[in-house]
């Protein structure tokens, strides 16, 4: 099996290396992928949306539909993991539980450091979400950092401590809420007579904006929704994985 796998992989690799000759040279500014669509984004993004970070603008505005369903993929993954681990028959005879030390006491130094660190982490995450228009960042990164702060709490204390701050039910609600914020902004655009997720129509209801700034503000709302969903779903995945779906004892 190993020899067969090696031969297969080797032949595939040689063929791929041979096709690599047809690719444009590395760093070629005039290669085909750098020519058509991306030049439009680079030249028009700032004029269209007043957002300097092109990546955020394309993510939340031009390709908003794509991002909405990527977010729902994460939501579905969280639900799927809860479904896989929580239900189904258990086989108690074969179940070799790993003997965790009885609810670890917790180290004073680690706990104090964590208590000081978590507010800073969460503040940074909020900054990353809110400032994603002007610097690297956005809903995905900020949501992941928020989830990491809850996981850090769970590692330094125990799972129940983290779950008392963000319970499983609440995490599901946040995840739902994030997606609803995203889809809701799209539906408001429809109600105002524009297409789904066509943010420029929102200037009719946002005070003191024109159709360019409306896109920038709507992007912030969308990023907040993405941040909620990513945070709650990744934390939910962690709690399910670490407690074998029981949400009782874990790290």
């Amino acid at each position: 099996m190993k020899v067969f796998a090696f031969c297969l992989v080797f032949v595939t690799g040689v063929m791929l290396v041979m096709t690599a000759q047809d690719f444009p040279a590395w760093g070629d500014a005039h290669s085909a992928p750098n020519q058509y669509l991306s030049t439009y984004y680079i030249q028009h993004t700032y004029r269209d949306t007043a957002v300097p970070n092109i990546v955020t603008a394309v993510l939340a505005d031009y390709r908003g539909f794509d991002t909405m369903f990527e977010t729902s993929v994460i939501f579905c993954a969280g639900l799927g993991i809860a479904a896989i681990l929580s239900f189904g028959p258990r086989n108690p005879k074969r179940r070799k539980r790993l003997g965790l030390p009885p609810s670890a006491e917790g180290d004073l130094i680690i706990q104090t450091t964590t208590r000081l660190l978590i507010p800073v982490t969460q503040l940074f995450a909020l900054y990353v979400i809110a400032h994603g228009h002007h610097s690297p960042g956005g809903g995905f990164q900020g949501g992941v950092i928020l989830a990491a702060s809850f996981i850090l709490l769970s590692l330094a204390y125990d799972l129940n401590m983290a779950l008392s701050r963000l319970s499983d039910r609440l995490a599901l609600l946040w995840g739902n809420g994030g997606l609803l914020i995203y889809a809701g902004i799209g539906l408001i655009c429809v109600a105002l007579g524009a297409h789904f997720l066509e943010y420029s129509a929102l200037h009719a209801i946002l005070p003191a904006t024109d159709s360019v700034m409306a896109r920038s503000h709507a992007m912030l709302g969308v990023e907040i929704g993405v941040g909620f969903t990513v945070m709650s779903m990744l934390f939910s995945i962690y709690t399910q994985l670490v407690s074998l779906g029981s949400l009782e004892d874990g790290l």
């Binding site: 970070n53 990546v55 955020t56 790993l98 965790l100 690297p136 960042g137 956005g138 995905f140 990164q141 992941v144 950092i145 989830a147 990491a148 996981i151 990744l234 995945i237 962690y238 994985l241 670490v242 074998l244 874990g250 790290l251």
Partner: peptide, 26 residues
């Protein structure tokens, strides 16, 4: 930079934690 930021938070942080959680439980 955006991709690098995401990878630093997700790949080096969360996916390692997920794997360690699974290894602890198996």
């Amino acid at each position: 930079v955006d991709v690098a930021f995401t990878e630093a938070a997700v790949g080096a942080g969360l996916s390692t934690v997920f794997m360690i959680a699974t290894i602890l439980r198996t």
